[in-house]
Design a protein around this nucleic acid. Structure first.
Lengths: 104, 104
DNA sequence: TTTTCAGTTCGAAAAATATCAAACAATAAA
DNA sequence: TTTATTGTTTGATATTTTTCGAACTGAAAA
């Protein structure tokens, strides 16, 4: 059985969250989730990246508090922790939603 | 005569700004400026850091669009580009102001 | 049970970043 | 003019981060 540690609202740190958002791959994943609700790894619109690298980025996003997983069978569905983020960092989700997604 | 290039509002990039804020030293400088208006290097409340390192961090903040300099004699006064940031990333400055400054 | 599928973890290599001391530049003060 | 002050730049090193392939894990399908 999986037991994954997510930071609680009070454990979330703005610098850590900003560092997580400071990578273009991760920013794209977060913006994707902010718009779409829930997706599994293959749903993130990031190209030319190995699955181990993607998994690494997901871990950083999860540990920063930005996203949370839901396990269903062999799939891992991820979603943005909108309510928690809105409580801890009011305005942050809107900021992400207002920003157009970069297409490379 | 100094000619420093600041990014225009439309040149500001959210990922780059987040990367700039994703370092504890730089986050502290920005929060300091968000609260205090204008300060020179010796006014940032960061300890145990050489002046060359501080200068490096200031450059990253300036090039991301977060801060702007004003030259007066031998001093360089820095301030947060609040109006520009509010236009480009509405809510970001408030987000920084709402967040208590970490004291290590 | 064996295979396939979705994803994580491990170990290593490459790239980027943070840090400092020393040298430099520009202004102001002596 | 010489010296002190405020900060930047340069060059080097140490650390961190990104990236990948290979091996692994757990669940579902064959």
């Amino acid at each position: 059985m999986k037991t994954l540690t997510l930071p609680s609202i009070s454990e979330m740190d703005l610098t850590t969250v900003c560092a997580a958002l400071g990578d273009p791959v991760r920013m794209k994943i977060v913006q994707c989730l902010a718009r779409s609700g829930e997706k599994n790894c293959s749903g993130f619109e990031v190209e030319h990246i190995s699955k181990s690298t993607l998994s690494h980025h997901i871990k950083i996003l999860r540990e920063s508090g930005l996203i949370q997983p839901r396990f269903q069978g062999k799939e891992h569905f991820y979603s943005l922790r909108k309510e928690d983020l809105d409580r801890r960092f009011p305005g942050m989700v809107d900021l992400l939603l207002n920003e157009p997604v970069l297409t490379e």
